[in-house]
């Protein structure tokens, strides 16, 4: 077992613990901060598996998301109660989760093993990128071969901005008399 793999497992376990704390803690602010820890864990994983561009983007996006969420947490205490607290519910839920995990474990046995991707599309992109003279293959894929996806991504951001503006209007409908004036 190599050193890289050990570090990888360590970071993923850290993410799992942070996620659990984020879900279970009563203090909403700590919950959001633990969520930030999950995101930064993901950035570290990106670095370990050789994706520096991804790590940078992840850090920036995570900071943005956490700041947004901290702004949202106007009431700090989580006073709600879950309906699942009695033993039968917990047992049923645990059984379901174990079932899913075991099923997934069995299915994953036939997945391409970790660390040996077939890369059919990736390899042909690499050859084409070399002909085109690109240095960073990720950006070559993003901005050249799959630029149409990037257009879609920009469109999603645009849609979200429009949506935020639409939802932040104070009044959705005009006053009653205004509406009837418009009709006639």
């Amino acid at each position: 077992m190599s050193e890289t793999l050990l570090i990888l497992y360590g970071v993923i376990c850290f993410m799992l613990v942070a996620a659990l704390v984020a879900v279970e803690t009563r203090d909403l602010l700590s919950s959001v901060l633990c969520l930030g820890a999950v995101g930064f864990g993901l950035a570290v994983v990106d670095l370990i598996v050789g994706a520096p561009d991804l790590a940078l983007t992840q850090v920036v996006v995570e900071i943005f998301a956490v700041v947004l969420l901290i702004r949202t947490v106007v009431a700090r205490e989580d006073t709600t109660r879950e309906f699942i607290r009695d033993t039968p519910h917990v047992a049923a839920m645990g059984a379901m989760i174990m079932g899913i995990l075991i099923g997934a474990y069995v299915c994953f046995q036939q997945l391409t093993p970790f660390g040996d991707p077939p890369m059919v599309m990736g390899a042909s992109y690499m050859r084409a990128a070399e002909e085109a003279g690109a240095t960073n293959l990720v950006t070559a894929v993003l901005l050249d071969f799959r630029a149409y996806d990037t257009l879609g991504e920009a469109t999603v951001i645009f849609a979200a901005i429009m949506g935020c503006y639409a939802l932040l209007r104070t009044r959705g409908r005009k006053e009653e008399h205004e509406g009837h004036d418009a009709d006639s």
């Binding site: 040996d116 991707p117 077939p118 599309m121 990736g122 050859r127």
Partner: peptide, 13 residues
């Protein structure tokens, strides 16, 4: 090394 290695190299030609 593996079937996937063969697929990778073949796709890159």
């Amino acid at each position: 090394w593996s079937m996937n290695e063969l697929r990778r190299q073949n796709a890159a030609l």
